[in-house]
């Protein structure tokens, strides 16, 4: 198993994790009640470790600014207030709109391109296919610093409107490798060869095969790439920093500004961090089942 086999997991990965061990009795076998208690204690301890920041962020976001002093940092708010949320929302609202209008199309377009590419790579063993695959794969790992300045110049020369359009374009292009990879593995492992073969016999061409047969069965693959792309576009900061400005940039830029001032309003910053994270968290909670698969599949992207 290797890089892309880890990614090959795709939808199956989620299923694999969910698959409980075949034998329920395994726990009893060789392990006592005491070891089970220890296991639980450890799990809860780690749970605490993960949730500590969440606790302090949540309570702080409901505090008045007088209440965010060092001494009371870990206490519950003396008086609960929604002001920090209002303040953060006022600042972030236009950024949120831009982020949404950016992440959704970027996710859809790169997924579509990825699925076509993936289908071709998985099913059409032309000479040099491996080289093309490696060629695409490498694009996923590059540090974007290495292309950022010429990219900025290219976009200026092409006269692409700064802001949402620039970022859609950038995320579409640099999202192709990961989407291609996910779909290639998806088609290679999930779609039975016979389906395509039978389509070929009927005389359907590659496009017909793709449209009539492949697209309808690609739904779960799409869910994975859509979630993955949505999350990574939403969370992107580097492209935003280089290619957009405060008045046309996405929410990561807005949060950096909100929390990066000289006189930091901690309560509003924390509320802002939460607001910024909501869309990806909602996606995660609602579609968590797929998300894990998506993470597995997107294994290779940073």
């Amino acid at each position: 198993m290797s890089a892309d086999t880890a990614a090959a997991a795709t939808g199956q990965a989620a299923a694999a994790i969910r698959r409980k061990p075949q034998k329920r009795g395994v726990i009893a076998d060789g392990s006592t009640r005491r070891s089970r208690t220890v296991r639980y204690a450890l799990l809860l301890l780690f749970l605490l470790f993960v949730l500590i920041p969440v606790y302090v962020v949540l309570i702080t976001s409901f505090k008045t600014s007088a209440d965010t002093t060092a001494a009371s940092q870990w206490n519950l708010p003396k008086t609960w207030t929604l002001d920090p949320w209002r303040k953060a929302w006022d600042v972030l609202q236009p950024y949120m709109v831009r982020s949404l209008s950016l992440a959704i199309p970027a996710a859809i377009i790169s997924s579509l391109i990825g699925s076509m590419n993936g289908f071709v790579l998985a099913r059409w063993r032309f000479p040099g296919a491996n080289i093309v695959f490696a060629f695409i794969l490498f694009g996923m790992f590059i540090p974007y610093q290495a292309i950022m300045l010429p990219l900025r110049t290219t976009f200026t020369n092409l006269d692409v409107t700064r802001g949402v359009p620039t970022l859609i374009l950038a995320h579409c292009i640099y999202g192709i490798p990961i989407c291609t990879l996910i779909f290639r593995n998806y088609y290679a492992t999930i779609v039975p060869n016979e389906i395509i073969e039978s389509a070929r016999v009927d005389g359907a061409g590659l496009v017909q095969t793709y449209l009539r047969i492949i697209l309808p069965i690609s739904i779960s693959g799409f869910v994975v790439t859509l979630i993955w792309q949505f999350t990574s576009v939403w969370n992107d900061f580097l492209f935003a920093l280089f290619l957009t400005q405060q008045n046309n940039g996405p929410v990561t830029l807005g949060l950096a500004a909100l929390a990066g001032g000289q006189k930091v309003d901690y309560a509003a910053s924390m509320a802002g961090a939460l607001i910024t994270s909501f869309p990806t968290l909602i996606v995660y909670i609602l579609l968590g089942r797929w998300f894990i698969g998506g993470l597995m599949a997107g294994a290779l992207k940073g």
Binding site: I109, I113, L169
Partner: peptide, 17 residues
């Protein structure tokens, strides 16, 4: 494919800042 790609680019002109 090109269409899809240019759809990407086309949105520049009418949407955004």
């Amino acid at each position: 494919g090109l269409l899809a790609v240019s759809a990407c680019g086309n949105s520049d002109n009418n949407s955004g800042g």
